[in-house]
Amino acid sequence: MHTRHKAFRALAAWLLFAHCAQAETLVLSAHFVDEFKNKATISVKLEVDVHPQTPHSISSGGNDGDIHMSGRADEVGLPMVAEIVNARKEQTALALLKATTEGTNIPVNGVWRIWFEHLGKEDQIQGNPVDVPDTSNPAHLFEIHPITQFGPDPVLDGFVEISNYKAYAAKVAFPYYEKVPATISASDGSVTITSGEGKYNYAEFVIELAGAPQSDGDDGYFVLANVYDTGDEEEAITSDARRMVFVKGTPPATRLLTMSKGDKMHVLGIPRVNLAEVSAMATNQATDTTLPYEMIIVAVLPD
């Protein structure tokens, strides 16, 4: 019995350590949170540091057909990358990226995305000096993903199904999204989020509109929707309606505008932190909770 207790305590300690080792803290300016919590996208002048010449291959998991670049932007003030989704559909932007040399400044617009996927060893504090990355995928919690404009060219053709890509099933991804632990707090001028590792970039699921879409007053729409696993639309797999993010001018947004409450759409989406909910939760006392998230809809899939 004594040995069992010891084993249990060792296991508990290991789990705690493992959890702590995979957590990271992000400190955002309160102004940034207020400005972007209800915006789909952000516009920056990106100083491109490192980028590959070809997009990811396409199969499953991280082989998603994206191409990403590391860079720095004063508007963000954090280690970051920017990604073109379904990049083979965006030959103009690809050609521009290939011709881009280190240190070139390029205007980039795209969906801002905070997700605790590529954790580092140090806290990330917005506004602190950002080291020049030596890889195209440095430790980062902030992304512009997907890019919607790269230089002079709109990058909206990639918002379609990624051919031959097998996304994560909703019944795998969403139970994980729903339970990512986080601690949220606020102080004068800042909002702090500590969270464990985020997974499952691309999930395939069915949404059923729970309300009317609302424009963010810029180039995005938000809508609340119930989430179902593909092929099992009897019971929602999230505890409540979740917020969905659409980018104006993309096929998903075009379809959204024809839909009414109760209508369904089969989609491909990627998660990001829901800053509106973070803002609503954040007080000067730390709150242990699950990480509030919302889904960026990047493609409409066949029904």
């Binding site: 609302q214 609340l224 609503a280 939760m281 000067n284 709150t287």
Partner: peptide, 24 residues
């Protein structure tokens, strides 16, 4: 008024037509 207790805080959208207004 100033804190949210760990286990009991929740965020809801009182009006599903207003996705920009979560409340806790």
């Amino acid at each position: 008024s100033s804190e949210a207790a760990p286990a009991t805080v929740s965020v809801k959208y009182e009006n599903k037509d207003k996705p920009l207004q979560p409340t806790s």
